[in-house]
Amino acid sequence: MFQIVRKQEYAKGTIIRFDINAPKIAKKIKPGQFIILRVNETGERIPMTVADKDEFAGIITIIFQVVGKTTALMRSLKDGDMIRDIVGPLGKPAEVHNIGTVVMIGGGTGVAILYHVAKAFKEAGNFVIGIMGARDKEMLILENEMRAICDELIVTTDDGSYGQRGFVTEPLEKYLEERYDIKLVYAIGPIVMMKNVCKLTKKYNKPTMVSLNPVMIDGTGMCGGCRVKVDNKTQFCCVDGPDFDGHLVDFDELEKRNSMYLKDEKTSLLFSIR
């Protein structure tokens, strides 16, 4: 059992932040790695990338958007409530070296994961350019935290209610045009966003890493549900990823596989309401 130490709500309660007491995991988890949690006895196992950790206080932070049954259930939890199972760290950590200038792109709640990785890149001594996108001003999270670690930060919103109007690809293209010293682009967010970022960076021939989020059950390489096609080879996201070379990932297939359970998700939600 793992206790929720602190709960915070953003964007009218559609984005939730949990600080969870998990000392063993906090000690070991590295940027880019994820955990799998199961809220209660009848719950499903869902993967969550860790947004931050406090090794000394033994606390890990997760930030998620309420989209389905389990996340809706998690919204109803309060400070001091328990989460039944948390297992981790899972996946390979992001490869962080001092390479020069990196562009970190986050979309939606992907910023939560990005923050952890971006912080590591900054600590390794890189020049970090941050680009974060959101649907509107409400949905924007971790802006101050990002501003603190990025050397340059650009915020975009789809409707222009805050920062630049448009998608993250526009400022990215500008950077790619202007700066020749960009060594790596790191993108985390919705599949469409990652796909478009990769299309753009391919044109400029810049190495791009993406963090994928397929359907998962056990997260230890056992079930093979999270298989993605990378460079035309089947890879398991939970043990070979979650970070992959964005230029090699088959995003269309991932998108199709991720929409497999939409109907069941609805059934499950309706059942819980009834």
Partner: peptide, 28 residues
Amino acid sequence: GNVFSSNEYLTRMNLMKAYRFPEYDTPM
């Protein structure tokens, strides 16, 4: 879609008790 490894199929059914979906959250 709907092509499973035996591990995934059995894990869903046995470990996650998907045959009792939607009482259990894992889809069958």
